Simulated assay, not measured.
Amino acid sequence: MLLLVVAALIIEKDVSSSDFCTRKEFARWFVKLCSKFERKKMQRIVPNKLTSGTVQCAFDDVNIDHPDFLYIQSLGESGIISSKLSNSLETLTTGSPSQGNSLFLPDSYLSRFDLVNWKVLVEHPCALEIDQKMLSQNVCILDLRACPDVSPSMLIELMAGENSIISRVFGNTRRLQPHKPVTKAQAAAALTSGRMKEAIQEELNRLEADNQARLSVIAEITEELINRGDIQQQWEEKMKTEQERALEVDNNLQHVLDELANERADREEELAVLLKERAALERKNQELINLRLEVDGMYDRLATENEEVMADQQTLENQLSDMTSKHQAVNEAKSYLEAEKEALTMLRTWVEDEAAHVHERAETLEKALRRWRIPED
């Protein structure tokens, strides 16, 4: 029951109990719980709202823009965690300072030692120094003896035995495993242990008492109204109002039904007109189909005639090719005859020239012969 109250008031709704808890998450829940349920003002941790002016950050890795800055800063300012604001140089957490830096490591998982240590520092803030011999004699947690940062508050808490925070959160164990991370369910169990358990129980009792008182007042008021008859009167008035509203609804319904009937008649008339238009369109479509068939027939006939024309054209081209071939043959024969004629003409001219030469030689020979014959006479 206490875990449910903490989950409803402090822890977010989308948190899974089996996930590991980070340091910033536990710091946020821890400070919220202490500021809301802590009854002692001296032990209450209240986040200081940011005001104008310079704010000195308690940790180097958590600045003012961090969403959980107020809660983490509150832990540093209260001295629960060693920080730059602390007067002591001892480190009470696993985030030890390095070269003068104080780190909180908000995204790291919360260890078991830090979980218990933060809690007991609030549970027992005024614990005095305890002799280390008491640790070896009365503390049954074996691996806690080797931790150098064990506070007196934790030793006082361990003396509680079965009622200690370790027993309530981790059960009956002799090994704390201080560096092992804790789950969010274990963190919630630690938050509701110790004095917070009593404070939360008191808050639950107060809420229950307030609820019972409120229910009693409601019952008294209801009984008084029944005795006075106000409830019956209000019921009759409400029934009358509902009857009037029902009558009005019926009238509106009838009006709507009439409008729907008129609308239906109009739609039927429009449907009839559309059917007529559809029939006309179908007739036109049929006419277009017939016309298309005729056009297709004409196209087929034109294609056939085109094929015939192409065949005739091919025949004419073949005949033209034959005539061209014959014409070329005639031209070649004519050229051959002209060449022979020219050759014969040249031969005739040559023969005539030769005949003339022969005739001249004959005349010359005849003259010479006559000259040769004259002396003989």
Rank of each mutant, 00 (worst) to 15 (best):
E269R: 06
D377L: 07
E277K: 11
A329E: 15
Q313P: 01
A265M: 10
K341C: 06
E269P: 00
R292S: 09
M310F: 14
S335D: 03
A261R: 15
A362F: 10
E366W: 10
H357Q: 13
D312N: 14
R370V: 08
Q286H: 02
E263L: 07
L275W: 05
K326S: 06
A311W: 04
H327W: 07
A333E: 08
E354F: 06
A333Y: 13
H357D: 12
E259H: 06
E338Y: 07
V330C: 07
D312T: 08
H327P: 03
Q313A: 14
Q314D: 14
T324H: 02
K284E: 13
Q314M: 05
R292Y: 06
S325M: 05
H357W: 15
V309R: 04
P375F: 00
M310E: 14
E287D: 14
E268W: 00
E269C: 12
D312L: 15
N318F: 12
T324I: 03
S321F: 00
V330Y: 04
Q328M: 04
K284W: 12
N262Y: 15
L288S: 03
L369N: 13
E282T: 02
R370Q: 08
R278L: 09
E352R: 02
R370C: 09
R370G: 12
R264D: 04
E308R: 03
T349A: 14
E354P: 02
A303S: 13
E263P: 00
K367S: 09
M346G: 13
K276D: 03
N290V: 04
A280N: 05
K341V: 10
A311T: 11
V273W: 15
I374S: 12
D353C: 01
T349C: 10
E259L: 08
A280L: 04
A339D: 02
L320I: 01
R264P: 01
Q314F: 09
N331Q: 12
T349E: 14
R292A: 12
E366N: 14
E282H: 02
S335Y: 01
H327S: 09
L337N: 01
K341S: 05
V358A: 13
T324W: 01
K326P: 00
A339R: 01
H357A: 14
R361W: 10
A279M: 15
M298P: 01
E270I: 08
E376C: 12
Q313N: 13
E259Q: 09
L260E: 01
R361D: 15
E308D: 05
L302Q: 01
L291V: 06
E360Q: 12
L320D: 02
E294F: 05
K334E: 07
V351C: 01
R292Q: 15
E366F: 11
N318P: 03
E354M: 08
N306R: 04
K367N: 12
V358C: 14
E317T: 02
E317A: 06
K276C: 06
Q328K: 02
R348P: 00
L337I: 00
D266V: 11
D377Y: 10
E259K: 05
A303E: 12
L291D: 09
S325K: 06
A333P: 05
E294M: 03
A261T: 07
A362V: 08
R370L: 12
I374W: 13
A333H: 10
E270G: 10
D312K: 11
E263V: 03
A265S: 08
M346H: 07
A333C: 10
E287H: 08
E332A: 15
A343G: 02
E282Q: 04
H357G: 08
L369Q: 09
V309E: 04
M323R: 04
E342R: 05
D322I: 15
T345A: 03
